[in-house]
Design a protein around this nucleic acid. Structure first.
Length: 115
RNA sequence: CCAGAUUAUUGGCUGAUCGCGUACUUUUAAUUAAGCACGAGGAAAGUCCGGGCAGUAAAGGGAAGGACAGUCGCUAACGGCGACCGGGGGCGACCCUAGGGAAAGUGCCACAGAAACUAUACUUCCAAGCUUGCUUGGUAAAGGUGAAAAGAGUGGAGUAAAAGCCCACAGUUUACAGUGGUGACACUGUAAAGCGGUAAACCCUGUCUACUGCAAGGAGAUGGAUCCUUUGAGCCUAAAGCUCAAAGUUUCCCGCUAAGGAUCACAUCUUAAAAUCCGCUUGAGUUUGUUGGCAACAAUAAGCCUAGAUAGAUGAUCAGUCUAGACAAAACCCGGCUUAUAGAUAAUCUGGCACU
RNA sequence: CGGGGUGUAGCGCAGUGGUAGCGCGUACGGCUGGGGGCCGUGAGGUCGCAGGUUCAAUCCCUGUCACCCCGA
């Protein structure tokens, strides 16, 4: 789990990202992102709907794996809001290294130089 | 040793590194930083019952609707639990059981069948008549139909032939009496009746039952001002009061309708802002012992504090180990029920085989 | 967190206790030189699952599973 300052608080800022942000698609996870003011820290949310898997245990596991990868990653851009949306239950089982490269690919797409 | 029955416990472990939530202590301009402690379950699940708590002014009576249904007890309460009674299953340990009323009334019982509940007569059996295989009458034992056939089994008597038509014994139900039991009920005796099934069909009897849900609900102190204590009409100069009609009381009727409450670019004190705080976790709590009780459970003594988040905390990686880790994660809180669950362990008991 | 509904043939739906049907699709045959279309004849159902009540259950009762919708 991430520190409190890297999480979202309330509906307003999430709604801003959904309406104004850009999106990047991966094979199992998609990402929606938007810039913040310069000196603010990055914020991350992971969305795992009930359609992905029925069991709360599996959904929690998917959410925690993604949070952990982001926490350990050095490629997270500063001053950015990120919303990951999972749409496959395979995220709970695939090896850690494979998942890590997938997330890093998505993070690279957010940098302004490549887009 | 094999096959089973019942009940209870447990639900991977060890180390390293990085990380999250809460409380406390110190620290900082500031959850800033550091330390230390604690951090999902037996079902947290389904949301099927029952309560607490909160609001609806208060929570009164009756009807309707709904739920439940052997007896006695336990409980805050229950549709739950315990013990027992009746019925059913198993060689047995033991298990299952919506188990009030069909003798209050109504409905339904397809097809087949003569007839499906005010009885009736297809094949029979018997008698009479004559047209000699038909008509009329008696009968319901035997056959046939059907899930079920008038509902009474065996033997006797009886008759033209038969039949609870009658008698004896056995059995059913109801009532009364006696004995045992708190009671359901059991046993015994006497009397009466001749009774299809279905109430998880309507219904009758008894018991219980307002509605909405923590996203409920609440928001420092003192003073001030304004307003409401439902609305309208009539009686009356006016006020007070009375009467009537509507309104509210979460479906209807009766009854009841103010203890008080609301608002503010108000003032002062004070520290902040609702993306917050309280509610929120110390509770019908839990562990061990003692006493009472067959038990559910209750009383009592000593000890314990054991998640409280708010986009929502328990994770990741690596190494080792074995039996290779099932089902699955709090969201106001409890008591149950139901469903999911790899295995491991313990206790008591039953049947069988072998040996001593 | 609370409330409501649905489950029947491959698909969409009827069926209020007594032999499970309709439309489309599908297989075969016929009409046509061929296709389309029409006509005829079929096949295809553990009535979501498990118990119970009843002589008899898609239907009544209880539990359970899956899916859908609504409110905050």
């Amino acid at each position: 789990m991430l520190n409190r300052q890297h999480r979202f608080h309330g509906y307003g800022s999430l709604r801003r990202v959904y309406s104004n942000g850009n999106s990047a698609r991966g094979s199992l996870v998609s990402l929606r992102y938007a810039m913040r003011k310069d000196n603010k820290p990055y914020r991350v949310a992971v969305v795992v709907g009930r359609k992905v898997h029925k069991s709360a245990v599996k959904r929690n596991r998917i959410r925690r794996r993604l949070y952990e990868i982001i926490r350990r990653s050095n490629d997270v851009p500063e001053s950015t809001d990120l919303i990951f949306t999972v749409y496959s239950d395979r995220v709970a089982e695939i090896p850690a290294t494979e998942l890590e490269t997938m997330i890093n690919d998505l993070l690279v797409k957010t940098s302004p130089s490549t887009s």
